[in-house]
Amino acid sequence: MSALLTVRGLDVALKTKKGARTLVSGVDFTLEPGGAMGILGESGSGKSLTCRAVMGLLGEGFTVSGRAEFQDRELLSLPPKAMRALCGREIAMIMQHPLTSFDPLCVIGDQMAETFRFHLETSREAAWEIARDALAAMRIADPGHILTLYPHQLSGGMLQRVMIGLTLTLRPALVIADEPTTALDSVTQFEIMKELVRIRESGRTSLIFISHDLGAMRMLVDTALVMHQGRQVEYGPAQAVFNRPQSDHARYLIETRNALTSRFLAYAGRRAGLDRERGCCRAAG
């Protein structure tokens, strides 16, 4: 089976007055169809920049070099028009901040319909119908009403679900989720993670999950790539990276995560078993 996305020697540089400044260098990875890869690293390590470079979303000030092959097409040399047709339909992105990803002046329905009309070439009415079905598929109550609301009228978790619904309706081959749960509270975070697990288990869509939260990543991915200061410091099967990290930085990230949660686990660790026994808690489900 040929790989869905192969990235080799990806470099990203920013043009500055003092010359080009390298922000990401030497990133290599391969994503199989139906696979899920996690990119782990601190803020500013180049996680998002790598994915934005692959999707051609960086501005003119950036220089991207290397190779990024998606279904036998070289993405880095694709003309903007072809890339625009590909984005959304074949490769979709779930952004970190749902509130700033939507236009604050348009209702949710119009924004979703605009995307469906562009990619599916349908009428406005049909696009609204598809949008309603997309929200219903994300288990959002009263989707017809939600479509008539503005982004600020929805909670962060609800907006994030709208964005995931919008992304999945077009059945892309690859979804890039850029810290989709960072801005959310734990219960909503868990609900969104369950949706992402559902996408993964459908087997139709491959996933790149960007996060600095190891806990969320453990739930989802089968391959992990660790980045530090724009460089790839570790890459391999997720279990191996999480349980036997080879690089100092991966070990540091895993140890701090464990230290941060150790007190909570020591006191509440028995809770999960109790909730399953009582069968009361929805989130434990």
Binding site: F190, R271, L274, D275, C281, R282, A283
Partner: peptide
């Protein structure tokens, strides 16, 4: 581990999961 309120239990379970 003795928390009774349902929302609080959901929160604990979500973090544990």
């Amino acid at each position: 581990v003795h928390v009774k309120d349902c929302y609080s239990r959901q929160l604990i379970a979500a973090v544990l999961a």
